[in-house]
Amino acid sequence: MNKVLTIENVQTFYGHIQALHGVSLDVDEGEIATLIGANGAGKSTLLMTICGDPQARSGRIVYKGEEITGKPTYEIMRMGIAQSPEGRRIFPRMTVLENLQIGATILGPDRFEEDLAKVYELFPILKERERQRGGTLSGGEQQMLAIGRALMSRPRLLLLDEPSLGIAPLIVKRIFEAIRRINEEEKMTIFLVEQNAHHALRLAHRGYVMVNGRIQLTGSGRDLLANPEVRAAYLEGGR
């Protein structure tokens, strides 16, 4: 298997506070890998560190054989990584269409219509909301827009930060179905961060469990789902 992403012993700090204590993991070409963990474990910090904001203080991040540690964020994203970040970060005073256009910034206009049609096919509600301002969408619609916006740059590695957070179960199902389709139809590699361990582990080929800024457990999605520790901590009587 070709590795798309390799993270080696990464440490990240916010000022004096250490958020990642030597994280190592890798993501293979074409797979859905998931990272689960409690609130505050450091999941979002890891996704943002991959994107260079904040920068890792030590360790190495390699994307498709090229080290990206220390590069500025916009250069990393131009190499084919896209992120739907925590909190979705839709541009509130831009329309849905403009949010998707800015998602295609690094590609230019040539294949815009084609990609737009794909995103609308994946999330038809976005087409209906095309002229509406991002800030007026519901949480679920904003999440779909955040994923759609990330897809508009034709990434080879898609980073998703808790796409189910604060969203009605029915919509969550639809979003996870879309993630599966993107992976299967576009052969896109996906790194999915979730607290919703049940959904994430069922979807993923491989899972990592993060506790306090460290990777505690690794295994296939199926194995982790069956693991008593994981069940106790993340599935039964909790999230």
Binding site: C51, D53, P72, T73, Y74, M77, R78, A82, Q83, P85, R89, F91, P92, R93, M94, I102, G103, T105, I106, R149, S153
Partner: peptide, 12 residues
């Protein structure tokens, strides 16, 4: 509107 997000979309 959001510089962090803009840079996540490849905007310099």
């Amino acid at each position: 509107q959001d510089q962090k997000m803009a840079s996540l979309l490849g905007v310099d």
